[in-house]
Amino acid sequence: MKATNFITIENLLIQIFLASAAIVMLYPIFMMVLSGFKTTPEIFMSPFSMPKKFNIENFQVIWEKTNVPRYFLNSIIVTVSSIALLLITGTMAAYAISRYKFRGALMVSLFFLSGLMLPLRLAIIPLFIQLKYLGLIDSLLGLIFIYTAMSLPATVFILTGFLRSLPKELEDSARMDGASELRIMLDIMVPLVSPALVIAGIYSAVPIWNDFFFPLIFIQSPEWKTLAQGLTTFFGEYSINYGVLYAGLSLASLPMIFIFIVQSRRFIAGMTAGALK
């Protein structure tokens, strides 16, 4: 629809609309980061001006006096482990479903897909009792299992689609070459769907990293809190110290924003993967 190489009133209006929308989106984030470099009185007195000097005291407070670094670490551990476990088990299931004909194959794939429809949050009570029984309350491992299970149906769905599109002859060729089924999977087929692994990984990683609900219920000890959950504690501690609070929010969001901007194409493809067949 490239009808826009010359300036028309129409195009001008579109640009004005989009530019104002972009300002509405960016300004709050910009202000959040900017305020992190201000002292609290400065934020209250002159909220719109640039900071008098970019002082990093607020960030120092967070780094030295709060648990936020610990929360960060926990979130990284949980997200990375969940995604690793998720991609391994998800690939296994998707590979079996997409590359082999066996009795009950349809049932098995429906079994995995039906998980897409089940909002796990609503089963939080039995899940709580079950984790208690398994000794997984107040433990990162419990979260890792929940996140893996929660994301598994979508991952299997995405990966099955990609794996199914690989030609059968590749597999046969490797079989003739004497490769075992495991080697066919690891040497030939899985490397060919690595873009899909990235997409499926991002699709699940962002909600897992951002999740607040499950830690809220399952994690109590400060040392196991994740970032999203830990922020609520942190907000309780520094309730009106706006400088520190803004710095905390910036610190919590900037790494994600940075990774997103660098990898925006993959992120957008990944996060909309469930909505776009």
Partner: peptide
């Protein structure tokens, strides 16, 4: 070997709690 581990995770942490609810 391919299907059991993911199925087990799904059963334990999704289907079982959902049914229990």
């Amino acid at each position: 070997f391919l299907l059991l581990p993911p199925a087990l995770i799904l059963i334990t942490f999704i289907f079982l709690p959902m049914a229990s609810a």
